[in-house]
Nucleic acid binder design. Sequence first.
DNA 1: TAGGTCATGTAAAGAGTTACATGATTTT
DNA 2: AAAATCATGTAACTCTTTACATGACCTA
Lengths: 184, 184
Amino acid sequence: MLEYIILGFLMTKERSGYDLKRCMTQTTSYFFDASFGSIYPALKRLTQKGLVTFREDVDGGKFKKVYRITDSGRTAFMQWVGEPITFERSRQDHLVRVFFYEFLPRQTAVDNLKDLMLQVTRVAQGLTEQKGEMERRYDVHQFPYRYATLLYGVEYYDLVLRWCDDLIDDLKSDSATPRHAGHE
Amino acid sequence: MLEYIILGFLMTKERSGYDLKRCMTQTTSYFFDASFGSIYPALKRLTQKGLVTFREDVDGGKFKKVYRITDSGRTAFMQWVGEPITFERSRQDHLVRVFFYEFLPRQTAVDNLKDLMLQVTRVAQGLTEQKGEMERRYDVHQFPYRYATLLYGVEYYDLVLRWCDDLIDDLKSDSATPRHAGHE
DNA sequence: TAGGTCATGTAAAGAGTTACATGATTTT
DNA sequence: AAAATCATGTAACTCTTTACATGACCTA
């Protein structure tokens, strides 16, 4: 997967490993991210397979390896991107603890959910700004897919926030039956 | 994480590795799942740490190891479940390809998105049925967290479906500008 | 008797992160 | 002069899946 994402980013222009990391952090990190520890080995593998080449560049004294996609790289990417999308149920780690919140005092549950909302709000803010910037600067109909993935992110975070809020409301209105009583 | 989920499932009753797998598939698979290849080693580790014990059972000739949570297991679980929830941006693999759909002919994009919708619909159906069954059989206010996580799943799949649908609509209304033209 | 389900387990491989090592340049 | 950023890379570790091995019981 990572290798194809790298190829995808190289489809439009040549980039260094460092550039690729920045790309991901800025544009895809809300649905896919990778560390240097996986990017550099991936670039090595792609080079060995002949899907990318690189030139060494000294830009202002700084040593750089700038990667460019090859023709077979383009072919491999085009083959991959056209394949049917396989829907994988994605792990939602934040749900795991909540699933077991029956064992927690209601107040702790509410506090932790509120804290979760704060975290999500922070992440969501960055995305919403990106979306606004895109709407201001471009005609979004020209980039339907980039815009759609951004929208997905904004709506997803919105869902998580609404969900937390609804659950907190539900817990407050119903504080007469503390489910955590009786354990042990 | 897996070890705590196992402890969580053992909080209410004793279960075998096989039971635990069935539990997860039935109740948490839309946000967390694990294979036998990770469950059995996890149970071994939990036993070594003294957080669970087991008894060997021969149920109708079938050999079973039934695990029970210990007191230190309960303590460890209660400590974990009360910790603040850390929100991790979760990978949404289905978005990765779509992010690069500018390189695909519009018709292929639409076809693949429709196929994705079919897959999601199938997964969503199971969850919606579970939700309906819970509403019929129990007073959902008695199980706010189980019900909330179910709701999350239903709403999440709904979001994905609406998102696909909106994107397909957008692509149809705007078919005059095929963005894929011009590559290679 | 063949295939399905119940039941446990291991080994190899895959995919990734974290931490570290290195060193130049740029900003404070 | 220190700290941050740019830039590449490796090694150890973690977590996980897939594939396999084993064997009993159940059902068509």
